[in-house]
Design a protein around this nucleic acid. Sequence first.
RNA 1: GGGCAGUUAGCUCAGCUGGUUAGAGCACCUGCCUUACACGCAGGGGGUCACUGGUUCGAAUCCAGUACUGCCCACCA
Length: 885
Amino acid sequence: MADEKSKGKPYSPKEVENKWYEKWVEAGAFHGDPKSDKKPYTIVIPPPNVTDILHLGHALNNTIQDILVRRKRMQGCEGEWLPGSDHAGIATQVIVEKQLVKEGTTRREMGRDKFVERVWGWANKNKDSILGQLKKIGSSCDWERTRFTYDEDLSNAVKEVFLRLYEKGLIYKGYRIVNWCPKDQTSISDDEVEHKEIDSHLWHIRYKVKGSDEYLTVATTRPETMLGDTALAVNPTDTRYKKMVGKTVILPILERELPIVADNYVDQEFGTGVVKVTPAHDPNDFEIGRRHDLEQINIMNLDGTLNENAGKYKGLDRYEGRKQLLKDLEAKGFLVKTDKYKLSVGTHDRCKTVVEPMLSEQWFVKMEPLAKPAIEAVKSGKIKFHPEHWTKTYMHWMENIRDWCISRQLWWGHRIPIYYCQECGETIAARSMPETCPACKSKIIIQDEDVLDTWFSSWLWPFSVFGWPENTDLLKKFYPTDTLVTASEIIFLWVARMVMAGYEFMGDLPFRDVYIHGTVRDADGVKMSKSLGNGIDPVLIVDQYGADALRIALILASPDGQDPWIGQNSFELGRNFNNKLWNASRFVKMNLGDKTPDLDTLPKDKLILIDKWILSRLEKTIKSVNADCDAFKLNSAAKTLYEFTWKDFCDWYIELIKPRLYDGTEEEKQTAQQVAGYVLKRILLLLHPFIPFITEEIHASLIDSEDTFLTTSAWPVAEEGFADDELEERLNRIQMVVNAIRNIRSEMNVPPGKRADVMIRVDDQALGTTLTDYFDYYKNLARIEEITIGEDVKKPNMSASAILQGAEIFIPLEGLIDIDFERQRLNKELTNLKNQLEKLSRKLANPDYLANAPADVVDKDRSKKTDFENRVEKLNQNLEQLMNW
RNA sequence: GGGCAGUUAGCUCAGCUGGUUAGAGCACCUGCCUUACACGCAGGGGGUCACUGGUUCGAAUCCAGUACUGCCCACCA
């Protein structure tokens, strides 16, 4: 970068990023060694689905993980960031099925084995693409250990877990009302159901009481389910209906006879106080049915059409059937009224289809025993959520845990390791197909058709990836993992279940810290999603601005724990910052001279105020960044670094050392060079986890070698003894003087090219000395020609003035000054100061304040008051003088 | 129905355990191609800190309530 060609050109990431990524991988910088003596730091990636293409959510998620693991490596840990992807049962199967439809065939036509083979082919092709995209954004994963949730060894873990739980009696098969997705034709778990509020109706339908002219009216939101009604229910204490209990009603249309039962579940206040009972299509009705021994009539096929139990409606889709049925009910006078009604329907989180509660035989995991240690782990603080408030969400779910429906009527996934003897009906749990039935020795045995929920493999991820159930070296070294980074959407589906699995199978927690970041939204605050088309492709951003710009912009835009709002131009911030860093580095490099610089030693006895100031700022910055990173406040850490780099280092330090670099003695020059190099290297180190490519490139250029990596260098330690508030305050005075002069010049329209003479009256000698001693360093910043500094400097005629704490600045502007404008300027300042002063005076006159406030606060206010009084007086004088011109 | 967040400049956000002349980035206005950087430099305008009470000598900051926004959970047909 130091060559002449790049001079003046902005940083171009493309040439740099691929090169460094390859070098890092070649050097094995991302590979965790289980034999290492270093303390491990482990992250397992939330495996993206094979069906995924990288979006900004992934980019944010992985950037965070990358920052954490890169920093830990630099801090001397044996880092292991294990990547991989998820076979994503339903999502993947659906994609391939769609392809088949286009080709004019179906999975059933194809047969199970062929179909699964076909999906494998597709998955193998796709899983590399998302992982490749992760490389593009700089993710420092250990690619030699890439895993897939459907890999053979992970399948073994799944089987092992199933069998252990089965033997313990924690996995059982049962008839239950489950959530059925008619589109994908499989059951799904409660946690995969998303509730949505829709505008619908509450239909009131009357049922004739047998042998009388009386009717009972029920209110329902799903009228079609009446085809499966097997009773009506009322509350036993409901006086309106007491005499009805035990009687029979006639189901409209189908004209079946239904008993009227009394059940406490019924709420007298709601609707009419009479409930239709459909045990096969509603979980509450199912329970009522059990209590009253009612028949269960399933009226639906697996695709959501009505079946033969629905009479003339057979074959119609559930909603079409509803329409027809309502028409008939109305025609026959059974529909009493139709009210508008908002209700919440469950939808399948993958395909958004409204799920149907349906009676079905499925496999379940009994969760309560597993939840116990998982609750304890968080309660005791062994596992911590960041931000902390997610603890409540987690706890609430855990404490109200329900059994997990794990069987899916799919072909793509881990097949349930259960076998049935076709002759004696024996159920056999086994790792593989048994030769003969242990009960009857029959050889006619078939495997359970169903596969397991995709999360049934994901919940084992933190240990299955390291070879469990074998007690491998990897497992010993890298489990428990340290930090889990994810979005809040999968706290239940994944995070909570991993905790349970960790304790149940490893006897230990799966991770210590859970960092929950926000969900990426677009510039208008709308969640980015494929269907809305408001997403931004991270790969395009990388092409346009570079991975570093993408990364730092994402972090800077993501307030800790809140949802970031991101638009196209959010990334310009990152690009601009990188370019700033690039150019500042170019400047430092240009001034380092020819020899290879020593970037790690300070000429401690030759430092001047300016050097000590930047070193003080550096020490504080390092401490602050460390504290933030340790607390998972990456946004705050990034902001601190951004400010330090741009404001302190570029705007002030570099500008203040120019006089020494250009006109100083050899010693002065060297000191400035060394400090600049030293500070720049720490900046690069601190920023490296955030923007790895550009920092590595700059560093290589500084040392003129590509053999020593920043990425394997040590994280900077704050060198003690430089942090000095008093010293920073001294430099701050110089900054205030420069600012005041710049302000006057700008407001008075002094042409930038014109250097001005400046006079400064100081209240005390110390300030005068500082301003005098360092004049050469700051005179260019304020464009000063001659300066006069002293305690008895008088305001010259036709000059503009500024009044600071402890100093008064005059700039003679014969011919340039607009007296009216200057008067306005001073008056504005005077009004402002007077207001402040009045408030302060009132405060200091309050005896309660003086009695209660701490002494140092009062002291501060007192000296502030004196200062304000002083300034008001000076301003008045200056204004008065203005009148005489 | 319950829970959790949030409400500070036109926009996105800082502001830690109460004492600051309430900050930053973007946007806006003015002037600058000053030999690191126009993806830049310098200067400027812009906020009764959602509302109402309370605690306190003192509240953007603590407490209570209200309103709105977003998210999550919930079997009331």
